[in-house]
Amino acid sequence: MLLIECPYCGERPELEFVYGGQAHIARPQNAPDLSAQAWSDYLYQRDNTKGIHAERWRHTHGCGRFFNALRDTTTDHFIAIYKVGEAAPAALKTRKVAL
């Protein structure tokens, strides 16, 4: 089980959290004008990164708040935790990992 550091409550076991999928996917403002392909990309296309992945978590059984994290999907180690609305820490995001 992962230990996840909620930026508001501190380190808690994974069971208190719900995974929210890839982070930084904004709902298109002009949804009615989008092509079927663009809408489908928004709904379904994900990076599925092998390496450093920016993702959302929600501390459901705690403060109830969403936050973002960078996690290495080859080790499951968390690299960084940051709040909603903040950009992913750039230096960490581009860190090289062996594929």
Binding site: M1, E14, V18, T73
Partner: peptide, 13 residues
């Protein structure tokens, strides 16, 4: 598991 991963492990729970 709840999260995407390439580790071929997963949580014991």
């Amino acid at each position: 598991d709840a999260y995407t991963s390439y580790t071929q492990r997963g949580g014991l729970h």
